[in-house]
Amino acid sequence: MDKKTENKIKIANAAAALYHKDSRFTYEDLAGEAGLTAKTIRSHFPNRKEIFEFYYEGAFLTYRDLTEKMEDMESYSLAERLSHLLLTLLDLFHEQQGFVEKTYVRVIERQGSSTPFAKHLVREVNQILMDDVEMLHIPSFVYNKATDTAILYHFHGLMRFWVRDHSDANQKTMELIDKWTALAEAVAYSKVGEKSFDFAKFMATNSPFTEVVRKMRAGLKKQSMNRSC
């Protein structure tokens, strides 16, 4: 990780800690907390919104940095790699839990796939899936925007579970991740993916409901157009 990124992460962490105490802190407060000048901070982040957004991106970059230093990553299974990603992010969020609880929905979830964090996350999950030779069962063109959205939804769901997890040391979230990734691995290694694709392709052209589906689609499109204006 380069010096600049390190500094930015340091600032974002300080901001997160401050935010938890008083959400209306100033750049001067932040300079005190981070041990830097307000001017330096401003050079990295022209406004507060960017700091908050970067907090999440920074968590991902920290994850990546940690992962690169791990020697046995090569031998991790699919479930282990997915767990490693999710658990490490939550480990980091845990340190600024107050901030994350208050800002995640606004800063990340509501922004859809546009934030750097969401982009990193989706790319990483896809990478993990594609790296796995066993995954050849699923043709690569099956991956598309829909799977990307699904990845994000799953992650948002996990965040909601985590926020509500009052078990000692977040044990329940850990269990959830463990069980969920084990299931994901089992599904990926089985031929379920391939067979579903086959089946979906067949049904798309032969289903008696095709007409109904087309109508539904048209309806959906209209709805979303309405929403955008």
Binding site: Y76, E80, R81, H84, L87, M174, D178
Partner: peptide
């Protein structure tokens, strides 16, 4: 067995670091 990613996080949760 407990998978390795989980081992790491349990250690961090319990002992403070990886």
């Amino acid at each position: 067995p407990i998978q390795r990613a989980l081992v790491r996080s349990v250690i961090r949760q319990e002992l403070g670091d990886y």
